[in-house]
Amino acid sequence: MILDLDRFLAAGRPSWSELEERLDRLESDPGHRLGVADVTRLHYLYRRAAADLARFATFSSEPEIRGYLEALVARAYGEVHALRPRGRQIMLWRLLSRSAPRAFRRHLGAFVLAVLATAAGAVFGGAALVLDPAARSVVLPAELAAWPPAERVAWEESVHADLLHGVRTRFSAQLFTHNTQVSIFCLALGITWGAGTLMLLFVNGVILGAVVADYMGAGHGGFLFGWLLPHGAIEIPAILIAGQAGLVLAGALLGRADPLPLRARLRNVTADLGTLVALCAALLAWAGLVEAFLSQYHAPVVPYGLKIAFGAIEAAALAAFLALAGGREP
């Protein structure tokens, strides 16, 4: 049996056209919410078009009509079966205050691994500098390697003029954009089954460890922590969270002890990846502001004790937020 196309088209056209119109309206406004009557009607029209497609596929194989019906059913299927967040906008505040700490705690293992990779790098960097002073130019960034701690501290403490006057906001923006790019890389390299993320975290750790060893070895611990802690107390966890996201992605790719297929594993972590990235961006924006407006001012302009206390308070607040905010999992 072959379908009578005339009759088939005449019977189906009104409902297909109505379905198309409703889909056009929905697609023109992503936040559009439907009433119960509209949802019921949309669902009916979708089932009707799906049934027409099934009937057509069985009794005819004319590709134009089949393509038209497939495209229509595909559009409607996406609308009818997909879950979307309620409301017109994604609630950023809710995302950061509730979803983000929950996502962080859900993947605490990945965060610990990110911390371990960074710590291993820090130990390596510190040890390299202590055991082989000639490695200084290799493990430290060029601008720090060329400037011995004692000379820098003496210079910074002797200059009372505001060196960032007129460039402070730009400096803050540059720090934010640079750190954002590093964090995105940290996450994105999770696609290398985590190897790239771990390497990036390790390298960050090497630099951090070498800087700490350099300044501590020269007896300038106060300067070091006064310089690093105000922004580092937020910036370093932010990069670790980006690394955590990368390792979560890697975990889903590897799927160790997880019976779900790869696509299902990835689907299960995508929401958490997006949430962790949003948290990371918010933390980096704050760290950029602090680094430009506070970290670059040293004693006697801003006492080291005050800067260290500020950094410690930030770190404690962040730890408390990540540990407690958002409540228990529903």
Binding site: E79, A82, L83, L189, G274
Partner: peptide
């Protein structure tokens, strides 16, 4: 761009696919 199951794109999918552009 569509969801590989034919469903509507979720915001986090859009974020993740575009962040991985870096790689």
């Amino acid at each position: 761009v569509v969801d590989e199951q034919g469903l509507k794109l979720r915001p986090e999918q859009v974020v993740v696919r575009n962040l991985l552009r870096f790689v």
